[in-house]
Simulated assay, not measured.
Amino acid sequence: MTTGTLNELRSALRSQAEPGIRAQHMRVLRPADGDELLGVRVPVMRDLARRYPKLPPADVDVLLHSRVHEERFVGLLVLAEQARRARGADLKALVDFYLARTDCVDNWDLVDCSAHLVLGPWLLDGAPLAVLDELAASPRLWDRRIAVLATLALIRAGRFEPTLHLALTLRRDPEPLIHKAVGWMLREIGRRDRQMMLTFLDQHLPDLPRLTVRYATEHLPPDQRARYVKRR
């Protein structure tokens, strides 16, 4: 049963739909069969999520199981906002809620808007990093991407080893979206400690996918980047 608050959120979301944005999102997201795209801008969805930070779990669950892509997106943003405010057992409950519903996190934008914001605070609070290995071993592409993106919170806190570990664990992954995600996280390390990223690339370049190297080196001077990409 949906609540009045949830119905308000859904109505507000639909009122912001734009045909032009929908066409753009169709090209970029390539939604699965059965998914509905409204065409709502991301800043609008972020603003909506901030307006409903106390949405109860049952309503968040309804959003996450919706076939409307933007409803899942907003549901994840609400969950991320709740995780930002939570501590201790409350935070763990939100993480468990998220991990039990990763089948609803089924596109790259849904992963990227939620993994580091929901799992990140929990990992920074001392949670076992084994959960990242479990996700990385999943047959689901999106679980593996969640593992990689969750480490962004650790990178921002100056903890790089979990990302480097996953970069090696997933180096033979068949999915380009994993290669891109790993390269992106390596680039984030490089923004904070360029020498660490370069040392990692120098040590493991033959084993890393070319796409990972291309993404990791985007911020390097063109001549230096070209040398790494060419060597790969």
Rank of each mutant, 00 (worst) to 15 (best):
M1G: 14
M1W: 04
T2V: 13
T5A: 12
T5D: 08
L6P: 07
N7K: 12
S11G: 11
A12D: 15
Q16G: 05
Q16V: 04
I21Q: 13
Q24Y: 08
H25L: 15
M26W: 04
M26L: 15
R27V: 15
V28H: 12
L29A: 13
L29K: 04
R30A: 15
A32S: 14
D35P: 02
D35E: 12
L37M: 14
L38I: 09
V42C: 03
V44W: 10
M45H: 06
D47W: 06
L48R: 04
A49L: 06
Y52C: 05
K54N: 15
D61E: 14
V62F: 03
V62H: 12
H65W: 11
S66C: 11
S66E: 10
R67M: 07
H69I: 01
E71I: 11
R72Q: 14
G75Y: 05
V78W: 10
L79F: 08
A80L: 00
A83W: 00
A83C: 10
R85H: 14
R85W: 10
R87D: 14
G88P: 07
L91P: 02
L94E: 11
R101I: 04
R101E: 06
T102V: 11
D106P: 00
D106A: 03
W108S: 11
D112Y: 12
C113M: 06
A115P: 08
A115R: 06
H116I: 02
L119K: 06
G120F: 05
P121M: 11
L123R: 08
L123W: 05
A127E: 03
P128F: 04
P128Y: 06
L129R: 15
D133R: 06
D133N: 06
A136H: 04
P139E: 12
W142C: 01
I146C: 12
A147P: 04
A147F: 06
T151H: 01
P162G: 03
H165R: 13
L168S: 04
L168I: 09
P174M: 07
L177D: 13
I178N: 02
K180M: 10
V182F: 05
W184G: 05
L186F: 11
R187H: 05
R191V: 01
R191Y: 02
R191F: 07
D193Q: 06
D193P: 00
R194D: 09
R194Y: 06
M196Y: 00
M196E: 11
F200H: 08
D202R: 14
D202E: 15
L205D: 07
P206F: 03
P206A: 09
D207Q: 15
D207V: 00
L211A: 03
Y215T: 10
T217Y: 05
T217V: 02
T217K: 01
P221S: 08
P221D: 15
P221H: 13
Q224N: 03
A226R: 11
R231E: 14
